[in-house]
Design a protein around this nucleic acid. Sequence first.
DNA 1: CCAAAAGTGTTCCCTCTACACCCATGC
DNA 2: GCATGGGTGTAGAGGGAACACTTTTGG
Lengths: 229, 229
Amino acid sequence: MKEVLPHFNSTFSIDCVLFGFDEGELKILLIERNEEPFKDWWALPGNLVAMDESLDQSAARILHELTSLSNVYMEQYYTFGDVNRHPQGRVVSIAYYALLRLGGDKSPKPLSTYAKQAHWINVKELPKLAFDHQQIFDKGLEKIKRRIKHQPIAFELLPEKFTLTQLQNVYEIILNKKLDKRNFRKKMLSFGVLKDLEEKQKGVSFRAATLYKFDKRRYAKLFGKEISF
Amino acid sequence: MKEVLPHFNSTFSIDCVLFGFDEGELKILLIERNEEPFKDWWALPGNLVAMDESLDQSAARILHELTSLSNVYMEQYYTFGDVNRHPQGRVVSIAYYALLRLGGDKSPKPLSTYAKQAHWINVKELPKLAFDHQQIFDKGLEKIKRRIKHQPIAFELLPEKFTLTQLQNVYEIILNKKLDKRNFRKKMLSFGVLKDLEEKQKGVSFRAATLYKFDKRRYAKLFGKEISF
DNA sequence: CCAAAAGTGTTCCCTCTACACCCATGC
DNA sequence: GCATGGGTGTAGAGGGAACACTTTTGG
């Protein structure tokens, strides 16, 4: 048996892929690092785990520090532990993704402590990332691609009231393919988890669309019946 | 921001749910602990991660030490990091499952160092487990339930040559429901990834069944087309 | 000849897919 | 009145589910 990991020079951290959806674009929050290693590189937000917090709490804290948001949909999806992934020691990183609605004043506040700035960046225009963060991102994107086919996570990316076209947009961008409008609507409505708000979109220069909201109560009653795309 | 985790009194470990399939029963390998904490309790095999090994390597090592097997199908599926999950300090545990064929002389060799004994135990008759290992097991079982519907993992639990009934058995036990024989065969064969070995079962006291093997090469060519159960 | 499991087709229904035009609104 | 997206139905194909009897073999 190999020698066991000494209790120093190793630790664990959380890295977060914060997905945001804004006007038809899928973005993630990146920070520009202010410290070595990888000073001045873009990176996923992350931090070491505090002694008195669980992994979930730590992920929620990181998100909160950057966005001031709480109660956001987050999920742990993989742990990265290659020996040399961090140049300064053995750091195992537990990856989370979060899904959130952009387009208000949800912009992040730069963290003077460990980041020069933070920006929402379109996932199709990502810069080179520090550490193994490209790999972490790739796996996160792959994860939500799978998940959106079976779980009602698309709604986390939209405002509470949304149109069917906006919803379709989320699916198209995440799945990276065009969907048929009629079939999409038929199927979505057939699940019976969308509540017609009998209310129209406002401020658009064309025919206003009907607004819907996701009916969590109804969805919970369908227990076990997975949505299948 | 909270105080960052000190680089001592914390570390990370691997815990493994080793699934084995044997004569219609799904089992996992449990060890009886020989050390505090939870001395004399049953637990999942696991260990601290060595300094010079990746997480995957560490999981493979644990499996190898117990079974002498290599090149086994293993997958990381979740990381458990509640603050108090380990009574002696902060230990974050990365969970893996493995799938393997039992029924030869694959029985584990007890590890005198940290276990009194190790046994294959039917998943329906598990004893009370140490730490949060029940939770780790539950999540692992749930994971393979999902995975078997889309990925060809059932074959990992069977000998190289198997009958369709044996294969159906694996699905029935993992999914925990009866399947229709004709529909199962039709569907399985329709994927085109089973190779008819033109060879019959031997030593049975009834009509011998045709043996098949999983054709990995064919499967690889179907790239992207997921099996769907 | 009996017990045990192997092996085999058809029908019905439902779901997925492909596909094109009129409607409402703001400017 | 024109540009923009909203909103709607149907037909055909394919896949999933339900269902029972004959065959083979060893003992």
